[in-house]
Design a protein around this nucleic acid. Structure first.
Lengths: 238, 238
DNA sequence: TAAAATTTTATCGATTTTATAAAAATCATC
DNA sequence: GATGATTTTTATAAAATCGATAAAATTTTA
């Protein structure tokens, strides 16, 4: 993941700090210091940025206006808004600018990086599935089950399951994407709950249990325990 | 996760409070009250701390200088800077010396603990290749067998073995990485069980026996006893 | 060949890990 | 805000593994 990021930020210290963290990740950073510069730079390199972060309070032209103009140039580029207060975040959402995420200041560099990775992963996945399943309702098919992300529905041996909770669905989908691969509880926490979540390993167990309950009413055992390591999805046996 | 943490903090009330919270987590806390003490303590116990938290504003020697000196002694030790909310220029300087995260004061104990856990997990994961996404299904192939670390699976003469315990798998993988090389029991204890483990040689024998049982049901003898020395992996004969 | 040393095998309690259920906390919706 | 659904935590039971020991088998050596 070698990202090219445009950061619109008037506070040099913030930009500089993020530059150092991005460098560690191997990412390129371009900084624009006010709204007018932001639009100019984006226009000149349209299509080149993988992601834009945008401060709401900017000199010369405010963040909302900049967001709108960027959206006109590139309707799909991932956009993260940086806002000073929660009330502003609500504003951003209310305005329907089409920001993909927002982060309130002050934020930790790690947190912003986590958000960028998560957002980028979402975008990549949407891209993949769009290519992979243009003719099918389902995003993923294995021996015994079919999964539709848009409908949040799982079909196991022809029987539909629509009552999975969000966590249950995400857990199943994450593991089913790589059948037979063993996922540690820590890895599942990172992939399903997100980098910024800090919970107990046992939480995963609890969700696995409920997921198994719902799935195994209607089909074979598809989630196996790998003792001392974690869990895996495999519906090719039994 | 039993961490040993060095907290460099001149405010006793902060240190004391964190001490209580860390205790709940089962973590060890060492406190240094000024910059000079910090470097002294770190130097004396170099390599022993899993993580250092460092206040930027310290008596005697400032946090930036302390960070630099700690970095020279241990380039990789996770380092979290604690900074006053409005001194962002300090943040930048602090981060220039390779801090891994920073937390702005005042912070809640829970938040700092969360950051510590996240950072520690990140460091652990960087070490841990077992959970990484593989390029191929198998990490290692020899005459009779293929080994997949991510699946914790061994295929011997085309037949899959998925019921190896963690120790059994690690033992096989360790030896199979260098076929024909003889490993003493001590060496295997070190490589598989770890440096800190002080156990009996016979333990290795017991695990070798169980491993052979599982493997030799489905294929040829792949682990040979080297009398008076130890064991080796070799599946080129038989 | 007999004795000594080493390896293999079998067994078992202690420890670690996982499953399950239920309580507590959080979140979302009206 | 109250209510119900979801998520998380906690407690305990159940299962599997680990590590030590000792006995049996094998190999070495005297």
């Amino acid at each position: 993941m070698a990202l090219n990021i445009l950061m619109v930020e008037d506070d040099d210290s913030v930009a500089e700090m993020m530059g150092m963290f991005f460098k560690k990740e191997g990412w390129q950073l371009q900084v624009a210091r006010d709204g007018v510069e932001a639009v100019d730079v984006f226009k000149k390199h349209v299509g080149e940025y993988d992601l834009v972060t945008l401060d709401l309070n900017l000199p010369k032209k405010d963040g909302i206006q900049v967001a709108k103009e960027i959206r006109e140039l590139s309707p799909k580029v991932p956009l993260i808004m940086l806002t000073a207060r929660d009330s502003e975040s609500d504003q951003v959402l209310g305005l329907g600018i089409g920001a993909d995420d927002y982060v309130t200041k002050p934020f930790s560099p790690i947190a912003l990086i986590a958000r960028i990775k998560a957002l980028h992963r979402r975008v990549e996945m949407a891209h993949d599935t769009a290519q992979a399943t243009p003719h099918s309702d389902y995003d993923l098919t294995t021996s015994h089950l079919k999964i539709s992300k848009s409908r949040r529905e799982v079909v196991i041996d022809g029987q539909s399951i629509t009552n999975l909770t969000p966590k249950e669905f995400d857990l199943l989908y994450t593991m089913a994407q790589k059948p037979k691969q063993v996922f540690s509880r820590e890895k599942l926490l990172e992939l399903v709950w997100g980098y910024e979540y800090y919970g107990e390993d046992r939480t995963v167990d609890a969700h696995i249990k409920k997921l198994r309950q719902k799935l195994e009413q209607k089909g074979p055992q598809v989630i196996q325990t790998v003792w001392g390591i974690g869990y895996k999805f495999d519906d090719t046996q039994g």
